[in-house]
């Protein structure tokens, strides 16, 4: 019963950790890219937004699993 809740919480936390690291690395690279080549800012921005959507989608898959586990507890 409670195992599913703990699993959902730990899984969501790990997913947030990974996503935070991923978006942090992406932001670092994007800022460095813009600092080195300011004229490429528009292109870098659109690519960065696209990449953020891909990275956060991985956390959202975990979120879906966590919700499924939560519904399993409350059911």
């Amino acid at each position: 019963m409670n195992g599913a809740g703990i699993g959902a919480g730990i899984g969501m936390g790990l997913a947030s950790l990974g996503t935070g690291l991923g978006i942090g690395l992406l932001a670092m690279a994007a800022v460095q890219g813009i600092a080195r080549q300011p004229e490429a800012e528009g292109k870098i921005r659109s690519m960065a937004i696209l990449a953020i959507a891909f990275i956060e989608a991985i956390a959202l898959y975990t979120f879906v699993i966590a919700i499924l586990l939560y519904l399993k507890i409350s059911a």
């Binding site: 959507a53 956060e56 989608a57 898959y61 979120f63 879906v64």
Partner: peptide, 13 residues
């Protein structure tokens, strides 16, 4: 399938 999950999960989250 990931296209569907991404949109749905983003809206719900």
């Amino acid at each position: 399938a990931s296209l569907a999950i991404r949109l749905c999960a983003n809206m719900n989250a």
